[in-house]
Design a protein around this nucleic acid. Structure first.
Lengths: 306, 306
DNA sequence: TCATGCGATAAGAATATCTGATCGCTCTTT
DNA sequence: AAAGAGCGATCAGATATTCTTATCGCATGA
């Protein structure tokens, strides 16, 4: 008789193509996983993986069956999510992924609000780049992600939350030197500091500054906005900084922020989740919560210097 | 952690609405099932059934979850079926339902052929009326059914195998009295013997003899064609007999068969299976086998008396 | 040739699950 | 109103499944 345990183990194995790793991910020892796989093979009467010495290969049948297993597991997750809905909104565990250019600036407030309004919710956070988040989301390892839209996947549904305008951050001494009239040409002439490969913020900035800014492309990317802002403060370059990050990252004495006078470039921050998820109302509630946070923030914000 | 066992037990419980019966169907004792249900409820955090004294009611959430469980279980079955395909055609276990007006006449030959050509196949037979068969088929308790087409269900796929013409069976003494010219009017005047409620053969005959044959409607239905043919032989009435059954059921000395000269009424015998089943090739092979049987039969058949 | 990494195997421990006996409740019968 | 039957819950002990730890054998690559 097939069990979900069989499918869980095998799906992981098909993904990792490695008994040891799969076992780790399933939080069991390798022999335990090996045995379950062997039993599943006996049960189905099909060889699922070819063991050839040091490496393994998932057979054709194995791949098809892994795909089916994945579908089944995801339906089970949905059943589980659906049941949770009956307990009320935003209860139980919710695994939320957030990109690094949002997490530090929004997460503390989110957590505050969540503990205040939804004390029953156990919010588990994963912080990494969009690509990894989306992959994990689709695979069902996350319930929702907070990223810059759009995300490309037919399996996902998204909800825009707020617009986050980009500002130009320059060393304060250099600020008077920036006339607003030709901001865009001016950017092309400066050394543009960016995050390392893989950060969506980097891509957005590059896309905006289509002007092939060779210096920026050559420069090794920084690992965090904090690093970048320190460099800006020291006069080593400029950067495009999302408004969201300004309050935290900007030392007003050393860095000046310049707003675009019209049609400012921006990113749209939004929530994404599996279209098939049964926790729609959780996501709506979470989205509303974040939106309201942002609105408060905007109201209390001091006028930008420019 | 949810298991398939939870879902299997609960799906059965939701269907039977009775712990004891569900336990029986799952081949465990009632406490075992009770415990699993309780655990599933704890796991999901939702009350699935209301225990009110002597009866139980499946809650709304329970019904929704049962539906999801059913879908999951059916996907698991498909995975299993799919795997079996990789072992070759017509191997393993195949649960086949056959209606009573076909089984006795076709099954022996089917079994002979199967053991000859597909010794690996373990064919499990269930014989009952169309309605029950279709229900069990949809529920996944059967893999295929051999019935008179059409069957009404969007979930099923069908394959016509052969036409089975109806003949009129009358006591031999009465035979000369039947002139072929006005067969249909003549039928209306006779006492028409039919199987009991629920047999498709009964409905087909009634439908053909739209002439509201009140005698037939009043008569208690017989439980088997054998009973009916004995009554025909004794001169207690006539019946519509499928050609398929003629060889076995007709005592040529006592019963005469009259064929319709043109556009004979008939039933179409065919195979049906779940559209979602992954054993298409098994069904095609089984269908071909039955077709070939029937063809042989027709070739060796003696000319009908009339 | 030896070291390393990987999966298989075996024995015993830990869990999960089931059975059988029994309880308490409700509804029906008398 | 009392007795009985039917149903699900509960409990203790038996059983079966699954896991861990320790170890092996086989490939691959230094």
């Amino acid at each position: 008789m097939i069990t979900l345990r069989h499918l869980r183990y095998f799906e992981t194995l098909a993904r990792t193509k490695h008994f040891g790793m799969a076992a780790d991910q399933c939080a069991v020892t390798q022999p335990a996983l090996s045995m379950q796989i062997k039993e599943l093979e006996r049960e189905l009467g099909v060889e699922l993986v070819e063991r050839r010495g040091n490496t393994i290969a998932v057979t054709q049948a194995g791949q098809d069956i892994a795909a089916r297993a994945e579908a089944i597991l995801s339906q089970v997750r949905e059943l589980s999510d659906y049941a949770r809905q009956h307990q009320g909104v935003l209860t139980g565990t919710l695994r939320l992924g957030i990109i690094p250019s949002i997490a530090p600036y929004l997460l503390p407030d989110i957590l505050t609000e969540v503990t205040k309004h939804y004390p029953q919710l156990d919010l588990q956070i994963r912080e990494t780049q969009t690509n990894a988040l989306v992959e994990e989301l689709v695979r069902g390892e996350l319930d929702a992600v907070l990223v810059a839209l759009p995300v490309e996947s037919s399996q996902l549904e998204t909800m825009p939350l707020f617009e986050d305008r980009f500002l130009i951050a320059v060393q304060s001494q250099a600020a008077p030197d920036w006339s607003k009239s030709d901001l865009r040409t001016r950017i092309g002439q400066e050394r543009l500091l960016l995050l390392e490969e893989g950060h969506c913020l980097r891509d957005q900035a590059l896309q905006f500054c289509q002007i092939a800014n060779m210096q920026a492309r050559k420069a090794l990317g920084a690992a965090s906005l904090t690093t970048i802002m320190q460099m800006v403060a020291a006069g080593h370059g400029i950067t495009l900084l999302p408004e969201l990050c300004a309050k935290t990252e900007v030392d007003r004495k050393r860095v000046a922020l310049i707003a675009f006078p019209e049609e400012p470039p921006m990113r749209i921050v939004g929530l994404a989740w599996r279209r098939s998820s049964a926790r729609q109302s959780d996501f709506t509630a979470l989205g509303a919560l974040i939106k309201s946070l942002r609105r408060e923030e905007m109201d209390t914000a001091k006028p930008m210097n420019r």
